[in-house]
Amino acid sequence: MFGQRSIDHSAGTHYRSERVSAVNGQYFFSTREGTLEGPYFTRPDAEREIAFYIRRMIQANDIIDSRSF
């Protein structure tokens, strides 16, 4: 799949994959930025945190954009 976010400098290929993984009974999710977030106690907790993470990243980008004159 080809895709480019507005903040990406060049086009790239992004493959859909499972973002939530379990390690020793704890759940983590990976980000496009290459970080591994967690641990969370349950898969639904990790999935909920993905939505919160996306919202935080959008808000951060909005703040940065609003400060660019």
Rank of each mutant, 00 (worst) to 15 (best):
R5C: 08
S6Y: 11
S6I: 10
I7R: 15
D8V: 08
D8G: 08
H9L: 12
H9C: 09
H9Y: 05
S10V: 15
S10G: 10
S10T: 11
S10A: 13
A11Q: 14
A11V: 15
A11G: 13
G12P: 01
T13Y: 14
H14D: 06
H14K: 14
Y15Q: 15
Y15D: 03
Y15V: 15
Y15P: 09
Y15A: 15
R16C: 09
R16Y: 10
R16V: 05
S17G: 14
S17V: 09
E18T: 02
R19Q: 06
R19T: 06
R19H: 12
R19I: 06
R19P: 02
V20E: 00
V20G: 01
V20L: 02
V20C: 03
V20D: 01
S21G: 11
S21R: 12
S21T: 15
A22S: 14
V23C: 08
V23L: 11
V23T: 07
V23F: 11
N24W: 04
N24P: 01
N24Q: 09
N24V: 07
G25H: 03
Q26V: 06
Q26K: 15
Y27A: 04
Y27K: 04
Y27M: 04
Y27H: 09
F28P: 03
F28C: 05
F29V: 13
F29G: 00
S30Q: 13
S30W: 08
S30I: 12
T31H: 06
T31K: 06
T31P: 01
R32A: 09
R32P: 10
R32E: 11
R32N: 13
R32V: 05
R32H: 10
E33Q: 04
E33I: 05
E33M: 03
E33A: 05
G34Y: 07
G34L: 05
T35I: 02
T35W: 08
T35Y: 08
T35F: 08
L36M: 13
L36P: 07
L36C: 14
L36W: 15
L36K: 14
E37I: 14
E37Q: 14
G38V: 00
G38N: 01
P39D: 01
P39T: 02
P39G: 00
Y40C: 07
